[in-house]
Structures are given as structure tokens and as C-alpha cells.
């Protein structure tokens, strides 16, 4: 918390020295509700569409409904969010997000973000949620208002295939140099198991480290490993061995947002009527699905 405040203060100071020629709109509305409202002309204002002076917890859902689109922050991450041949976003997460937006009577707009900046994107209001196979770590839960978990995942170890037989247990991993994605659940696991590691910018980068021989092994998501490692990929010389933990995916909203409750309700309903399972089936993640 203190760290966050310090960085905010630093940012504000820097900004002050730049505003003179910076963003153009010096001092505008202090209220997020107001500004979004001006974009959406009419119609679709929900029951508390004019909640301008309430806290963000009261206004977030109404504000999003008012502007008519749910802006979903994603990365290109098969099988959760990826593009079909026509350039439309599909995947288990993308389809669920589209369905959720429909249930609110609005449209989902998918925006690719830099994963490191997901909390920044959310709190600055550039996106409304992070819905991209996001592991519910303490850090994530601390910076966002997270939905109930909907998918199981694990952090698993990736090594070159020819050495796989040597590293089938957790104890055998000591002494290896790992590559992990910075700030990822994989990094948390490496820390917890006391492993030596280098943090790289993303999971794909961690794999490249192993393929290039600059690291001995990597730790990445099991759902991702299924899509990226082994036969038919550029990493066919790599394979996965031990699982280090089990963890869960969830959707992140702004702190205090009432969209979280709306999504939990929506998950329950669509699990109850079987739509959630059907979509999971389509993308091969049915085994990982968590009952709502």
C-alpha cells in the first residue's frame, strides 16, 4: 500500500511538470460517472444510471452500462482469448465475456493490453475488467475486485525433452536456473520452492530462454503449456514435467466495483443451465472448469 502511494505521488509530480503541454484536457470532471455518460447519448441508462456522486462501488456497473460497452482487457492467449480467421476474438474467456456483456444489455469490446500494466489499465479506467486466464494470486486479489474462481490451473516445469527423465520430482529441480514471467504465478512458485530464477517479460520469453539454452528450465501455466509446448509447435524439443501447485483463474474488476457481484450471479446461472460447460467443451477446458 505504501509502495503504491509513493509511486502515485512520484507519478503525480512528474505529471505536473508535463501537463503544461501534455494531455490537453487539464482539469476536467473529477467524477468517472460524468465523463462516460457524456459519450453515451441516451437509452440504456440502468436503474441508477445517474449515480454521479456515489462511490465507484455504486456507479461502476451503471457507468459501464451507460456507455454501452464492457471494455475487456486481454492478451492473445489460446485457448482463453484469441482471434479466429476473421479477426474476431474467441476463446473460453472471450465467449463468456461476450455472453456476460449481453446479459447486461451491452456489447463487449476486446482490447489487447500489456499484461504487466493490467492493474494500471483497470484503475485508470481505460478498461473495465481483466478477463484473460488470470491466476488469482494475493497480488491480483489485492489490486482488483476479483470474481469467484472459474477454472483450475497449475504452474508446471518445462525442460528440454531429452532431459525430462531427470526432473520428474520437485526435489530434483534444485540447482537448475529457471526462467519465469515477471510478476506471474510462476515467479511466486519459484520463490516458494527456493529455486534460482531469472524474471523475463512474459511466459513465451521464458520458453525461449529454455529453447535457447540460456536457462535450464521454465515455469508456466499448464493451460498455456498445453497449447505451446511439444509436437507441432516451435518448442517441440521441450516438454513439461512436475506440477508445482494448483491454482485458480478469475476475472478482475476495479476495486469496489459492483460488476463482480453481477458476474458471480451470471456464472451461477450459466453453470446451472449448462451454457458454461458447453463453451468450456468447445475450447477443451472442460476438465479444468470449477463448479459455480
Amino acid at each position: 500500500m505504501i509502495k503504491k502511494m509513493i509511486s502515485m505521488a512520484l507519478m503525480a509530480t512528474l505529471c505536473l511538470s508535463m501537463t503544461a503541454c501534455g494531455s490537453g484536457s487539464g482539469s476536467t470532471s473529477k467524477d468517472s460517472g460524468k465523463s462516460v455518460q457524456s459519450d453515451a447519448d441516451s437509452g440504456q441508462s440502468g436503474d441508477n444510471g445517474n449515480a454521479q456522486d456515489g462511490s465507484s462501488a455504486e456507479s461502476d456497473k451503471a457507468a459501464v452500462v451507460d456507455k454501452g460497452t464492457l471494455v475487456v482487457g486481454i492478451t492473445d492467449f489460446e485457448p482463453m482469448d484469441y482471434k479466429d480467421e476473421n479477426g474476431n476474438w474467441i476463446g473460453f474467456d472471450a465467449d463468456m465475456a461476450t455472453a456476460f456483456a449481453e446479459s447486461l444489455g451491452i456489447k463487449a469490446e476486446f482490447v489487447e493490453i500489456e499484461w504487466d500494466n493490467k492493474a494500471l489499465e483497470l484503475s485508470s479506467g481505460n478498461i473495465d475488467c481483466v478477463w484473460n486466464g488470470m491466476t488469482l494470486t494475493d497480488e491480483v486479489k489485492g489490486s482488483m475486485n476479483c470474481s469467484n474462481p472459474y477454472c483450475n490451473n497449475a504452474q508446471i516445469v518445462i525442460v528440454p525433452a531429452e532431459k525430462a527423465s531427470e526432473y520428474q520430482t520437485v526435489d530434483s529441480l534444485n540447482g537448475l536456473n529457471f526462467a519465469v514471467e515477471v510478476g506471474s504465478a510462476g515467479e511466486t512458485q519459484a520463490k516458494e520452492h527456493g529455486l534460482t530464477y531469472t524474471a523475463v517479460s512474459n511466459q513465451a520469453g521464458a520458453l525461449m530462454e529454455v529453447a535457447a539454452g540460456t536457462s535450464d528450465a521454465a515455469i508456466i501455466d499448464s493451460l498455456m503449456a498445453a497449447a505451446m509446448v511439444g509436437e507441432g509447435t516451435s518448442y517441440d524439443q521441450l516438454t513439461y514435467t512436475v506440477g508445482l501447485n494448483s491454482e485458480e483463474y478469475g476475472v478482475g474488476f476495479r476495486k469496489g466495483s459492483d460488476l463482480k457481484d453481477a458476474l458471480d450471479e451470471f456464472f451461477k446461472a450459466s453453470y446451472a443451465d449448462g451454457t458454461m460447460q458447453k463453451i468450456a467443451d468447445t475450447y477443451g477446458v472442460q476438465a479444468a472448469l470449477i463448479a459455480q
Binding site: M8, M11, S29, S32, S35, L120, E121, S123, S124, N126
Partner: peptide
């Protein structure tokens, strides 16, 4: 990010 974070107007 400044407009959204500090000015509350993305």
C-alpha cells in the same frame, strides 16, 4: 494513464 488515474477522466 495519468488522465484516468489522477484526473479520474480516461
Amino acid at each position: 494513464y495519468f488522465p484516468g488515474l489522477v484526473l479520474k477522466n480516461p
